[in-house]
């Protein structure tokens, strides 16, 4: 494997966004790119990352390899990279280590690290293709704000989407709260728009602790997409350039 990223910031942010949710992960490398799928310890949430080969330049992967990496270790090494450094990942066939180099675009500084790999016996889950009943695309900062504000009151949030819009409601010991958003087009700045596409009304309840955690990815993208259907996991997607993505799935709370 040899994969060169123009900006180390992308990998730094991805790892930062998932490291509190999942610890030891296989980075599955093949000629289409680098993928990661992992559940949190309590099997409530699933992280699915895809960094397409087009996000790297150049990208070369001659044989499929799984790089088992501890994300705490990777975080320690990535801390040594500046956001605008050029980052190159390298691994041999049947590797013991993954090699990372960080090159400063402005100076002749080159740093190089090896991280020991681990054997991780990870189960891959089959994520079915789903036609979601409701898809909401909103500013990622807005979604972060809603989850943060409501998590101060309650452990869980009900998300209801109807043709009127989407409503986030919570009930806690000190009282209750809600935030409603309507479809809204911002003509000055499309990134601030709220798009709602609905085929049938949905109402689901989720743990806010996980949603707050997912929002650590907000720095990766101005926009976030929420996909919901009744009685299936919520999909929270942060799109990256070149069709790469970071997706989180969250199992709903089960009704009384």
């Amino acid at each position: 494997l040899e994969a060169r990223l123009e900006q180390a910031a992308m990998l730094k942010r991805v790892v930062d966004a998932i490291k509190d949710l999942v610890q030891d992960c296989n980075f599955d490398c093949n000629d289409s790119g680098i993928a990661l799928q992992a559940m949190d310890n309590s099997h409530v949430a699933l992280v699915s990352m895809m960094l397409k080969s087009e996000s790297f330049s150049p990208f070369r992967c001659d044989r499929n390899i799984a790089l088992g990496i501890n994300l705490t270790s990777l975080t320690k090494v990535l801390r040594a990279a500046q956001g605008d450094d050029i980052l190159t990942l390298k691994a041999e066939d049947a590797p013991d280590v993954v090699n990372l180099t960080f090159e400063s675009p402005e100076s002749d500084r080159l740093s190089e690290y090896d991280i020991k790999l681990m054997d991780i016996d990870q189960e891959h889950l089959g994520i079915p293709d789903t036609e979601y009943a409701a898809t909401i695309t909103l500013p990622s900062s807005e979604f972060s704000r809603i989850t943060r504000d409501l998590s101060a009151l309650s452990e869980s949030v009900a998300i209801e989407c109807t043709k009127e819009g989407v409503k986030f409601t919570c009930t806690g010991d000190i009282g209750n709260g809600s935030v409603s958003l309507r479809q809204h087009t911002n003509v000055e700045n499309d990134a601030k728009s709220v798009d709602i596409s609905l085929t049938e009304p949905v109402a689901l309840t989720f743990s806010l602790k996980y949603l707050v955690n997912f929002c650590k990815a907000a720095g990766l993208s101005d926009r976030v997409r929420l996909c919901l259907s009744n009685e299936v996991p919520l999909l929270v997607e942060y799109g990256l350039s070149n069709n790469s993505y970071l997706r989180f799935y969250l199992a709903p709370k089960i009704g009384d």
């Binding site: 699933l46 889950l125 299936v232 199992a251 089960i254």
Partner: peptide, 14 residues
């Protein structure tokens, strides 16, 4: 964690 669904009951093992 009562009332919390498990992701594996929605997405089967590959």
């Amino acid at each position: 964690n009562p009332g919390q669904g498990n992701i594996m009951s929605f997405f089967g093992k590959k």
